[in-house]
Simulated assay, not measured.
Amino acid sequence: MTDVTVCDSTLRDGNHAVAHRLGVDDIRTYARAAALAGVDVVEVGHGNGLGASSIQVGLAAVDDLTMLRTAKAELRDTRLGVLSMPGFCCVERDLKPALDCGVDEVRVGAHCTEADVTRQQITMLNDLGVVAKGILLMSHMIGAAELLEQARRMQDYGARGVILMDSAGAYTQSDVEEKVGTLVEHLDIAVGFHAHNNLGLAVANTVTAVAAGATIVDVTSRGFGAGAGNAPLELVAANLHKTGVPTRLRLFEALDAADLAHTAFVRRVPTNDGITITSGIAGVFSGFAGPVRRAGEQFGVDPREILVELGQRKVIAGQEDTIVEVALELARRVA
């Protein structure tokens, strides 16, 4: 069996859970613990990746380059990774300076139907000899055949792997089997899976992805991430250990890293509630949970109704302004 690569996104996806307020001490301490735990990649940055710190999606407490330099100083055999989403991340302003900080791996992300927008960055990184992988966000929104078409484009651009991101936590295990299995069967590069826990299936879906042939999985300590959170490092480590899946993870050190994160900066362990569950059912980006709660309170409407309407409109990350628009329309209907 091929070794499974574990990417720890605690210091990137986890930033969503604290309004992007992770500090230098948090980054330094956790990067060291994650490296000891044997994760392959520590992904660091604003929740939406390089260049995303803004009023619209949240201002980070620490700038990108400081975050990256801080983490890099704690890593030896563990690679430093970043997320780059064209539109947020500019090559000259954000990506090239990040590479100068010692970034080893860049994941270039796009909405699941828009792989074309990753071409410039993936080809450039490939030419520079930097490991580039593609990410297809909100991948529940299209079928396996269309996902394969988009993933093939990323492969053609030079991506070393493609990760399906269940950004809304909407996947069931049968979805994972079909979509991950299709990519594994037809691509010549690695396939990965990034779970969210809106329906309580993050760990089960991650294990199912591995069984379907995925060789990259994403985790966060205590599931620390947007909405209902991600697949917890400690539980994925335990399940892969128990089933004999080969990884670099050291089980007890992974458990220690999760405990440390909980003590240091996980102020609230992500849980499932009416908002996050509705988000998963409606297929709405997990990072919308907080803004939807606030809009519901501001306009006196049920936040679950906001999520249902957002799902019907097929709103995606980056369209946060629509939340207020929908909340206002719902308020007018009941006025």
Rank of each mutant, 00 (worst) to 15 (best):
84 S>F: 00
23 G>M: 04
66 T>I: 04
28 R>C: 05
118 T>L: 00
59 L>W: 08
121 Q>L: 12
62 V>F: 09
130 V>W: 07
103 V>I: 09
35 A>C: 11
82 V>H: 11
97 P>C: 07
79 R>L: 14
66 T>E: 15
136 L>C: 04
31 A>V: 01
28 R>W: 01
91 V>L: 14
145 A>V: 06
89 C>P: 01
112 C>L: 03
90 C>Y: 05
144 A>Y: 05
22 L>G: 00
142 I>G: 10
94 D>F: 07
58 G>P: 06
70 T>A: 12
109 G>Q: 01
118 T>S: 14
39 V>M: 01
135 I>Q: 11
68 L>N: 05
71 A>F: 09
86 P>T: 09
35 A>N: 07
115 A>T: 04
30 Y>Q: 15
132 A>T: 00
83 L>D: 04
36 L>R: 14
57 V>S: 09
127 D>S: 14
31 A>D: 02
45 G>F: 09
102 G>I: 04
142 I>Y: 03
66 T>Y: 07
87 G>S: 11
141 M>F: 01
79 R>W: 08
92 E>F: 04
119 R>T: 13
28 R>F: 02
126 N>I: 00
73 A>E: 15
93 R>V: 07
78 T>G: 08
57 V>C: 14
59 L>M: 15
32 R>W: 08
49 G>I: 01
42 V>E: 03
75 L>W: 03
91 V>K: 08
52 A>G: 09
66 T>H: 07
93 R>I: 02
77 D>S: 15
97 P>M: 02
138 M>D: 11
105 E>Y: 13
106 V>C: 11
106 V>F: 09
36 L>D: 13
41 V>I: 15
118 T>M: 15
37 A>Y: 03
92 E>Y: 03
80 L>W: 06
89 C>K: 01
81 G>N: 06
113 T>M: 14
118 T>N: 15
44 V>Q: 06
69 R>Q: 14
126 N>V: 06
139 S>M: 03
79 R>H: 08
54 S>R: 07
38 G>S: 02
61 A>W: 05
102 G>V: 08
134 G>V: 00
135 I>K: 00
84 S>Q: 08
141 M>G: 02
63 D>S: 10
125 L>Q: 07
46 H>Y: 06
104 D>R: 06
141 M>T: 11
43 E>W: 00
44 V>E: 10
88 F>N: 12
34 A>L: 12
69 R>K: 14
28 R>H: 08
132 A>M: 02
84 S>M: 11
21 R>Y: 02
58 G>E: 06
61 A>V: 04
65 L>Y: 12
71 A>L: 08
106 V>H: 10
58 G>Q: 05
102 G>M: 03
39 V>T: 05
143 G>W: 00
20 H>W: 00
33 A>S: 12
20 H>M: 01
124 M>S: 13
119 R>K: 15
63 D>I: 10
139 S>T: 04
45 G>S: 10
141 M>L: 14
69 R>M: 08
96 K>F: 14
60 A>G: 11
131 V>P: 01
55 I>C: 10
85 M>G: 12
110 A>W: 02
95 L>G: 09
82 V>D: 07
110 A>M: 09
77 D>V: 07
71 A>W: 03
93 R>H: 13
133 K>L: 11
54 S>N: 12
79 R>P: 00
110 A>Y: 02
83 L>F: 14
42 V>S: 10
52 A>E: 08
